[in-house]
Nucleic acid binder design. Structure first.
Lengths: 257, 257
DNA sequence: CGTTTCCTTGACTTAACTCAAGAGGAGTGG
DNA sequence: CCACTCCTCTTGAGTTAAGTCAAGGAAACG
């Protein structure tokens, strides 16, 4: 039996709050309201299972509390594309509230603890104050921006660039949620996951990972990932963090503690 | 001097309304409110100019009244990716209201007539009734869905499939706005545009277009496009229109007239 | 301690790119 | 009206990045 926390409380505080505070400065009341979101009964899926599946009727907005997941979609002939990675603190509208059926699935990489927040509770949040609504809008528009960046990644960058870009994005996003200590973090993905996200074969991903290692840009063994040369990796990837929009008033708050 | 309408009223009625009616059935009052959106002073850009540029401060939501445009983003070394096509009736949040700077540009293919709708007027719409809010949500979530589909397109499909898929999407979207008569429509794109949207070279796009023609799937001369075999093209592309979510209550209304 | 999953490497194939040059139109100006 | 330019489309020949197939090794799992 794997040694994994199962019934323990959220181990990283409140990842959503941690991230939203980069965008907007909250009052104590607002903070409590956000924390209350994750107070409901958490669900758990085992690693490599689906949280929700294409064709399901959406049950609410999913808030990832702990663990990694991804959105994906499958073509008729079995080819599979990972569309986005979902990290702790990610709110993922699954999708649009309104649609009858999901047009994609969400799968777990690791064991994932999450909450299905009924839409009413999200809407109720927004009523509490414009800052909360603003933060949620901000978050949604960052999600859209990331999706656009993936379009560029797949359309214009070659293999090493794509891979380097993905690593940069993941590290920046983990940092924003407090899940990266300096240049080190946990990346529980397999090279096959990376292949499905970057549109290449696992074999080629492997060669590119070796290449990044050989250039002294990254270290990656098991789940343990380290950026040895952030500037170098960004340069290879032509990574510009602007699209993550991590530059709002909240930054000040973040710097202060 | 080119012979182009310039100060004439919107030639296709209300493309936004035409499209939203596929999603939601409106009352007369709601319809008027939507039509009022395009009552403001329309702006015009000449073909191949930008409506807005990366780094600009967003001025509002853009509503395309007439003509084709696209979102795009440029890498440092000049490579350019078209991220989405914007057709008449498209509302494009440019972007997120909230951000200080746009993280991408919007360029015109043809001459484009459009309106910059202040965010307040969008919000005011939503207050008028839940159906309007619902329709706008629907629209936004379809946009997100299209963006996800592009990710798959670029990541998993090969050259002919990508191109076929793009043609299918455009035809379906034009139909939903009443801009395709049967299987014929206007596609004012160059093969270089298609190349920038599908992540290939113009030369290769050309070869693939020839291929689709040779297979008897499409006819395309100048701007005049015709699907000769919709089922065949969908099959080549593994196109499944579900992601466009054109299947709401409004469909009944549409069928009725 | 065996089994499965994941990573790694090598040899070969192929889809797509590059470079280059020519053809067809559309608009421009003499 | 014709010559000119510019832009887009087209075709061919050679190159390259990435895919395929196959097999061995190293972890991780149970």
């Amino acid at each position: 039996m794997p040694v994994q926390r199962d019934t323990s409380p959220a181990p990283t505080g409140h990842p959503l709050l941690a991230r939203l505070q980069h965008y907007v400065r909250f009052t104590g009341e607002e903070r409590l309201a956000l924390e209350a979101l994750s107070a409901g009964p958490a669900l758990t899926v085992r690693q490599r299972r689906d949280l929700v599946r294409e064709g399901d009727r959406p049950r609410g907005v999913i808030l990832i509390l702990d663990g990694w997941a991804f959105r994906y979609k499958t073509l008729e002939d079995g080819r599979r594309q990972i569309i986005a990675f979902l990290l702790p603190g990610d709110l993922c509208d699954a999708h649009g509230y309104i649609h009858r059926h999901l047009d994609h699935s969400i799968g777990a990489v690791t064991q994932v603890r999450y909450i299905e927040v009924p839409r009413e509770r999200i809407e109720a949040l927004a009523v509490l104050g414009p800052r909360l609504a603003q933060a949620l809008w901000w978050d949604a528009s960052v999600t859209a921006s990331i999706q656009r960046e993936w379009t560029i990644n797949l359309g214009q960058r070659d293999a090493i660039e794509r891979l380097a870009h993905l690593f940069c994005e993941l590290v920046y996003r983990l940092r924003a949620t407090g899940l990266a200590a300096g240049d080190r973090c946990d990346i529980p993905l397999t090279q096959t996951d990376l292949a499905e996200a970057t549109g290449m074969t696992p074999v080629h991903v492997n060669r590119m990972v070796q290449d990044l290692r050989a250039r002294g840009l990254i270290r990656w063994k098991g789940h343990d990932f380290e950026m040895l040369d952030l500037a170098g990796l960004c340069s290879v990837a032509m990574f510009n963090p602007g699209y993550l929009h991590l530059d709002h008033e909240g930054r000040l708050l973040d710097a202060a503690g």
